[in-house]
Amino acid sequence: MRVLVIGSGSIGRRHHDNLSALGAEPRLVSWRKAGLAGALAAMEDTEAVVVATATDIRLPLIEAAATRGLPMYIEKPLAFRPAEVEAIAAAAAPVAGRSMLGYMMRYHPAVRALAGMDLSDVFQFALTIGHDVTQWRANWRFSESYAARAEGGGVLLDLCHELDLAACLIPGLAVTGVESLGHPAFPGVDFASRISLAAEGLAGDVSMDYLTPLLHRRTTLRGTGRMHDFDFAAQVYRLTEPSGPRLLDLPLERNAMFLDAMRDFLALASGGGTSGNPLIPRLDLCLGSARLVADAWSKREFIGSITKEIP
């Protein structure tokens, strides 16, 4: 299958390489060099499209691909404004059942294990993720990245996988408030955010930051019958029941998640059978999560600023 990858940043290159490994015929196009006209021209000779550009320039690409009947793999987040989520949902509707949103964490073995458990007793939850953004990659500067933009940048959008996981595990969540910390050098960009969420009979929060010195990533679900404490950074997954705690063996090879997601996308795009993952992020099935992310971004309330130097 011929697949056009639009966006030649680190994630676009990863998708290109994974597509090659899976036997597809990918073509990588740099948005900065090709622009909209070049990207649209490249769509004339492809069977599917991966959209790995900055979030704020995707709508015309999605409209063009959908008009041509091309299924899409769209990097997360889908959009950061609620109105744009709805515009994309309407434009992509003809191919949404054969398209995917890039929530590759839905292929994590620990996430799949959690989703298969009985969580009906949960009354509180907390999901956290963070890492010093200046340490992410070699030869990379935050100030020169998409993340430093007031429109479409910031930690809430960058690390929104945790919001998606909350939506997967606990249906019906609504945003009740968002507290964010900014930086005087980057107006409108959140460097730490805490999103308060609630559904009938339970409440919790999702927190993310660009600041902590070492990677942390944890999901805690507290219920009346059991507690799930999953440390994704340490790969330690603890389930505590009345009989006591036990550890779950759920090994991970990180790129396997990307490969599994892309394998399912190729299957969807070609009309074949997918892996059977019940959490498959098919575009038409995860619009609720996309709406939750955009709603949270629109409700950010900046309550202060950090002083850490961010190059």
Rank of each mutant, 00 (worst) to 15 (best):
L156R: 09
C168T: 12
G182T: 01
L169G: 07
P187K: 00
C168E: 14
C160D: 14
V175M: 00
G188T: 09
L156E: 09
E179S: 13
A174I: 10
I170R: 07
E179Y: 02
L165W: 05
L173I: 05
A166L: 11
G152E: 12
I170Y: 07
F191W: 06
D190I: 03
L159P: 02
A185E: 13
T176E: 13
L159Y: 15
H183E: 08
G152F: 13
P171D: 09
L159Q: 14
T176R: 14
A167S: 15
H183N: 08
C160Y: 04
P187M: 01
F186R: 08
F186W: 05
C168F: 07
A166C: 10
G177T: 08
S180E: 02
D190R: 02
V178Y: 02
P187D: 01
H161W: 13
E162S: 13
G153E: 06
P171R: 03
L156M: 10
V175E: 05
A166M: 06
G188H: 06
L173V: 08
L173N: 01
G172K: 06
E162F: 13
E162A: 10
E179F: 03
E179Q: 12
T176L: 00
G154H: 09
L159I: 11
D164L: 02
A166Q: 07
F191Y: 09
D164S: 15
S180A: 15
E162K: 05
G182W: 01
C168M: 12
G188M: 12
A174P: 00
F186E: 05
D164C: 10
G188A: 13
A192E: 15
G182H: 06
G152Y: 10
L169E: 05
G182I: 05
G177S: 03
F191C: 00
L163R: 13
V155I: 14
V189H: 02
A174C: 03
P171S: 03
A192R: 15
L181Q: 09
F191S: 07
F186M: 04
F191A: 07
D164V: 11
G153Q: 14
D158V: 04
H183D: 11
L173Q: 08
F186G: 04
E151Q: 15
C168I: 06
H161Y: 12
H161N: 12
L169D: 06
A166I: 09
P171F: 10
T176P: 00
P184A: 14
L169T: 09
E179G: 00
A166F: 09
I170F: 15
P171W: 07
S180N: 09
H161R: 06
C160F: 06
G154N: 13
C160L: 11
L159A: 14
C168H: 11
P184L: 11
L169K: 09
G188K: 10
V178Q: 08
P184G: 03
S180G: 01
P184Q: 11
A192W: 04
L169N: 05
G152N: 05
P184S: 14
P184N: 04
L157T: 03
G172R: 03
G188C: 08
G153A: 13
T176A: 01
D190Y: 01
A192Y: 10
A185T: 06
A185Y: 02
D164R: 03
L159T: 11
D164W: 08
G153T: 12
F191L: 13
G154K: 06
H183W: 07
I170K: 00
L165D: 05
E179V: 06
